[in-house]
């Protein structure tokens, strides 16, 4: 299982030609308790770096940027009634969106776990 990271604190897990995307534990901790999340509608094509979802804390909304270009497949429905799942299990059950990977070569520009861990200290 290959997991990549962005400097915007998203993670991306590759499952065949599908990406499962969420935010890192570091990001979830920085945001505080997440009260709401939603994603772009399924079928929407997003370019790498476009907003693909949003997570909201009490105080502010934060965009989640697509780590790669692709089509939105699904939002994690478990977050609809329990967005704080992102805080409890950010890199597991608290995934946010599934999307296709249009161009696998974009993965090469992302960070691996060791590089990301070094970035956030």
């Amino acid at each position: 299982m290959t997991v990549y990271y962005t400097k915007e604190h998203e993670w991306l897990r590759v499952e065949g030609n599908v990406a499962v995307v969420g935010i890192t534990a570091h990001a979830a901790n920085e945001l505080g308790e997440i009260v709401f999340s939603e994603a772009r509608d399924p079928g929407t094509t997003v370019e790498q770096g476009d907003s693909v979802a949003v997570v909201e804390s009490v105080k502010a909304a934060s965009d989640i940027y697509a780590p790669v270009t692709g089509d939105v497949l699904a939002f994690n429905d478990a977050l609809t009634d329990d967005a704080a799942l992102i805080n409890r299990d950010p890199e597991g059950e608290g995934w946010i969106v599934r999307m296709t990977i249009a161009d696998a070569s974009q993965l090469e520009g992302l960070m691996d776990h060791a590089t990301y861990t070094a970035l956030v200290g």
Partner: peptide
Amino acid sequence: VQYPAGVMA
């Protein structure tokens, strides 16, 4: 803006 407990708490 907040302490370790967080805004919600």
